[in-house]
Nucleic acid binder design. Structure first.
Lengths: 241, 241
DNA sequence: CGCAGTTTTGATCCCCTTCAAGTTGGGTGG
DNA sequence: CCACCCAACTTGAAGGGGATCAAAACTGCG
């Protein structure tokens, strides 16, 4: 059941048959562990495999000349690092393990075979890339046109839905293994300001902090972040009622 | 030769045979004109066609509750509005004609047929979506971690390369049909600050303004914007030497 | 126990925003 | 051919959201 998160995620996009589920499970020959803060893929690499996160968190990031860093995506179990299968090309950014990660290395032609044999999986893979792009656009909106409070609220809502999809969020209880610096690098803020903004969200009764972040008032958070889950293109419109 | 920009763009990704070029030209049954500031596609639409910009400029955008707007992409001749062929799903954002636009409406199955018959075109389409994503990530870096000057410089460099690809930029002479407000909405700034920043770039001798923007010092602009064209994944590493 | 990374808090600064007003220029109608 | 208008550009002054700098408190862990 290593590929369970992948199956859960893809099932959110397309109803999968037993055969299709089985086909996914058979992708899993090669499994590797990356330790915290190790690069899974480095800019300039031209990977031979498709990488799939099966456990742990990772992040796409770019580094600037002044030492600044921008995180452009969080990858959680079920997410693909590089599904651009048929196009051999050098990575234009790096991917970092934020926690210890289990990553499947899937042969490119295995993916191609699977998509050749089943339409539902092809659609699910496409949908997955479509959603990745939609998430990127939402991040752009957050960073470019929302204030810190709304941006963080939106990010928490996004992660809540995505974690729920793969069974990693019970009803608003999120284990975010992210430092405030990492949240800052993902929202274009500074760690100091993330700290103050989280406190503001706490004081508004929207979240509780502790070992894990708890979304105390999901509806309120969604309003504060102007969050509408439609862009995640799920079959079931809302994960949480 | 309506599809010339598409052919030029895809040729930048993959060497295309005469047959493949011909296949693209045959996509062009249905052609429509959109006037300036009309929506080409509106959020919530579930288009039956794949839309391709053949002439003019368009922009993806989202609108916020407070009336703010974020532009998440500029589309120029040769660009696809929605290449997510096999996945019927509602648009999560809108696309606007920034100038009068010629847009091809291509049947989804026509795209599917073409990609079934030729590997190079399949690869080129994939590469195209990969590049769209890379551009999105670069915008995120600009908005999140670069100052106004670098962000605008980077955007100008990106548009320069992309316009050159489709034959719309002679050696640094760009016709940007963009208002400063539109540049602002694309960079997460205000129109006022875009104005001042463009002046600063002018005073630095990096650009000239007039009826069209001229990149007076391309190398300098690329340095100012920390621009490295690698993320555009072109066969020919640099369009401009 | 001690260290290193993270969180928290305070004080100050600045890039960019906001508000406001003036200017320019292309388009339109008389 | 000029008067008018509106959209875009430009410039100035003032304010604020978030950055920066600095240091203290907390956490986990070897």
């Amino acid at each position: 059941m290593l590929f369970e998160p992948v199956i859960r995620k893809l099932s959110a996009f397309e109803r999968l048959s037993g055969g299709e589920v089985h086909a996914i499970q058979k992708l899993g020959r090669d499994l590797r562990v990356f330790h915290k803060y190790r690069d899974i893929i480095t800019e300039g690499d031209n990977p031979d495999f498709v990488h799939v996160v099966l456990a742990g968190w990772a992040a796409r990031y770019s580094v600037l000349p002044d030492g600044g860093r921008m995180i452009t995506a969080f990858l959680i179990p079920g997410d693909f690092c590089d599904i651009h299968v048929t196009t051999p090309s050098a990575m234009d950014h790096s991917i970092l393990a934020i926690t210890d990660c289990k990553v499947a290395f899937v042969q490119k032609h295995a993916i191609e075979e699977v998509t050749r044999s089943t339409v539902a999986l092809t659609r699910a893979f496409w949908r997955s890339t479509l959603v990745d792009e939609a998430i990127l656009r939402q991040w752009l909106v957050c960073v470019g046109r929302r204030n810190a409070k709304a941006a963080l609220a939106h990010l928490l809502c996004e992660l809540h839905v995505r974690l729920q999809l793969v069974g990693l969020a019970d009803n608003g209880d999120l284990h975010l293994p992210l430092t405030q610096t990492e949240l800052a690098d993902a929202t274009g803020l500074t760690a100091v300001h993330v700290n103050r903004t989280l406190r503001a969200l706490r004081q508004d009764g929207l979240i509780d902090e502790g070992p894990s972040i708890r979304l105390r008032d999901i509806a309120g958070l969604r309003e504060a972040g102007d969050f509408n889950p439609q862009y995640l293109h799920l079959r079931t419109p809302n994960v949480t009622a």
